[in-house]
Write a protein that binds this DNA or RNA. Structure first.
Length: 286
DNA sequence: CATTACCTGCAA
DNA sequence: TTGCAGGTAATG
């Protein structure tokens, strides 16, 4: 569910409210949410840690943790390592930061209780969301596995071209591949293809330099618009205080099957590309 | 390359 | 009752 704009919207709120907070305890309501380490180690490494920063890489949210200070007469061993709590919300996961005494949220799968009484809750109807604790090496591996951040200078038309020109796959399937660009999902892929006037089933190697330049701009434009509107909420996405986004009111093609194309009025068509529902204007997108 | 499994709820 | 849903890893 949450793509880059939804994760970024959540990140901005959490980054303004979490740094400095100390983790008092962690509860796993559904142990399947935890990838690693085992629940006991996970709880032990989180307890007492202080959240220092909230970052995002693609669709992953990363909480940097400073370890708990050692007990008073601490032996002069190696300092405990900084760790990172990595969260991926997959399809229906939401992260809520709730005030002390807030009523429970449906589908809660994990809770970080903070020392000040607040709770950071991971809630996920479909239970596909995952979280894990990473050390610096694991975080670096995650970083390497992902393509460039589309809203940074690392994402250039040349780099996009390099990952498209030799590929025989259909364009939309490649846009969803996180190794190519980090953060696009089904909504913003469809919207970017519409903004670039490109057919989702177009074979990637047939794109011209002009096509790629338009696509590069379109990817940035739709993601920036999504962030500006605090995400797209068709069904399940909510922000860190439970609020829906507004971008669903502004999409051109996504879930607008049969409705007129905003550019030419032709009814929007829905097909299947790369196993995903895909919406496009058969007139404008070639 | 494409398809399936992982989950649950809801619309068709 | 079936198929589909904003994602990804694991299969053919």
């Amino acid at each position: 569910m949450p793509e880059l704009p939804e994760v970024e919207t959540t990140r901005r709120y959490l980054a303004a409210h979490l740094p400095g907070a100390r983790v008092a305890a962690v509860a796993l309501h559904d142990p399947r949410v935890l990838e690693r380490p085992d629940p006991a180690t996970f709880a032990a490494q989180l307890a007492g840690a202080t959240i220092t920063e909230v970052r995002r890489r693609g669709k992953y949210l990363i909480l940097d943790l400073a370890p708990a200070p050692p007990p008073a007469p601490a032996a002069a061993g190696p300092a405990p390592a900084t760790r990172h709590l990595v969260v991926h919300r997959r399809m229906t996961g939401n992260l809520f930061l709730r005030e002390p005494g807030a009523p429970p949220d449906a589908h809660t799968v994990a809770v970080l209780s903070l020392a000040d009484g607040r709770e950071l809750r991971l809630c996920d109807l479909r239970r596909l969301a995952r979280l894990w604790l990473a050390d610096a090496a694991e975080l670096a591996a995650l970083d390497r596995a992902l393509g460039p951040e589309p809203l940074t200078p690392a994402f250039t038309p040349e780099r996009l071209a390099a990952s498209l020109t030799r590929r025989r796959a259909r364009l939309k399937a490649l846009l969803l591949d996180q190794r190519l660009v980090a953060g696009l999902g089904n909504i913003y892929a469809d919207e970017a293809l519409f903004a670039a006037s490109l057919h989702p089933a177009r074979l990637a190697h047939t794109l011209t330099a002009e096509d790629i330049a338009r696509l590069h701009t379109a990817i940035r434009t739709v993601l920036e618009q999504g962030i500006h509107n605090e995400g797209t909420s068709f069904r399940d996405y909510r922000g860190a205080v439970g609020q829906p986004g507004r971008n669903q009111l502004l999409v051109a093609v996504f879930r607008r099957t049969g409705q007129p194309c905003p550019r030419c009025g032709t009814p929007i068509v829905k097909t299947r590309v790369g196993g995903r529902g895909t919406h496009y204007c058969p007139q404008c997108q070639r």
